[in-house]
């Protein structure tokens, strides 16, 4: 039974990881951009939801769209302040600027929300399903379902719609895209907003599983980076697979070896995999 239980844990962890990484998959993979404030946007997504629940007394399911909207706006603001760097695809400067932005967010959040650990309360977190010696919560089911639906939707949009073709065109050659009548800065803005919105959504779904702290975010951004690289940069399917793979690894390694070394071991696992398959899990 412990195997089945760990499998379920891996599945839930993995879909959480994948959800957190989805925005970056599009951002780095399709638009060739980076945002190292990604982890802090995750933190903020969780805290905005927590804050409106605490202060305005809104229910959990209302706090989700509020948080997504707030963080999306912040993403738009970030992009607008970096338009020039974005258009020039100046990744080094973008890395520094977004890292700095992340630190500012951490500082701002500490002032605004305090340094104490909090809990983002989802009613589904308390609803557990126990059957045949295994158990999981309805929150776990929600995370898994959202991950599958969102990944499918993003894959479809990227590969089957004109907007998706625009994103891929901009990833390949933003200058040329202008000659095709495409407003490249606007598409970049859309991609940034999408990245911020999805990481906030991921935060509101995943964060109820553990206490939240304004200092969190570093682990999330590293995790995201691993998943995106492991999945084969830009591959939506690859990122989902990598998320699940990492989730399974964390669950089984944590149970059968030691939870203390999981991250280090996961990095080892990624290193080995990338040396065998430099392009990650993606088929391309």
């Amino acid at each position: 039974m412990i195997l089945v239980q760990q499998f379920i844990n891996g599945l839930v962890l993995g879909s959480g990881y994948a959800l957190i990484a989805l925005g970056w998959t599009v951002l780095l993979g399709a638009a060739r951009l980076v945002n190292f404030a990604h982890g802090q946007l995750y933190m903020l997504g969780a805290f905005v939801a927590w804050f409106v629940m605490e202060q305005a007394g809104v229910p959990y399911f209302v706090s989700i769209p509020v948080s997504v909207l707030a963080v999306a706006l912040l993403g738009a603001f970030m992009q607008a302040s970096m338009t020039r760097l974005v258009m020039e695809q100046n990744l080094t400067s973008l890395m520094i600027v977004t890292l700095g932005f992340g630190y500012m967010l951490t500082g701002g959040a500490a002032i605004l929300f305090g340094g104490a650990p909090q809990t983002l309360d989802s009613p589904l977190q308390g609803m557990a399903v126990r059957t045949g010696g295994v158990w999981f919560t309805l929150q776990d089911v929600l995370i898994l379902a959202c991950a599958l639906v969102l990944f499918a939707a993003v894959w479809l949009v990227l590969n089957r719609t004109r907007i998706g073709a625009m994103v891929r065109a901009i990833a390949e050659d933003p200058k040329l895209a202008q000659l095709f009548g495409i407003n490249a800065p606007l598409v970049y803005l859309g991609i940034f907003v999408f990245e911020a919105a999805t990481v906030a959504l991921a935060a509101t779904l995943v964060a109820p599983r553990t206490p939240i702290l304004t200092s969190m975010g570093f682990e999330e951004v590293i995790l995201t980076f691993m998943i995106v690289v492991l999945g084969g940069i830009g591959s939506v399917g690859g990122s989902l697979a990598a998320g699940f793979g990492l989730g399974m690894f964390t669950a089984f390694f944590g149970t059968f070896v030691s939870p203390a070394y999981t991250t280090a071991a996961a990095f080892g696992f990624v290193l080995v995999l990338l040396s065998v398959r430099p392009k990650g899990l993606a088929r391309r």
Binding site: A165, M166, R168, A171, E172, D173, L176, L179, G181
Partner: peptide
Amino acid sequence: AHRGLLLVPEGKGIFGGLTVEENMALVR
């Protein structure tokens, strides 16, 4: 370009990662 001033630049003028159909559909 929207106003009808259309340039086909020197060298690379299409998107290699997109199909012929997708390249054409990019243009509205």
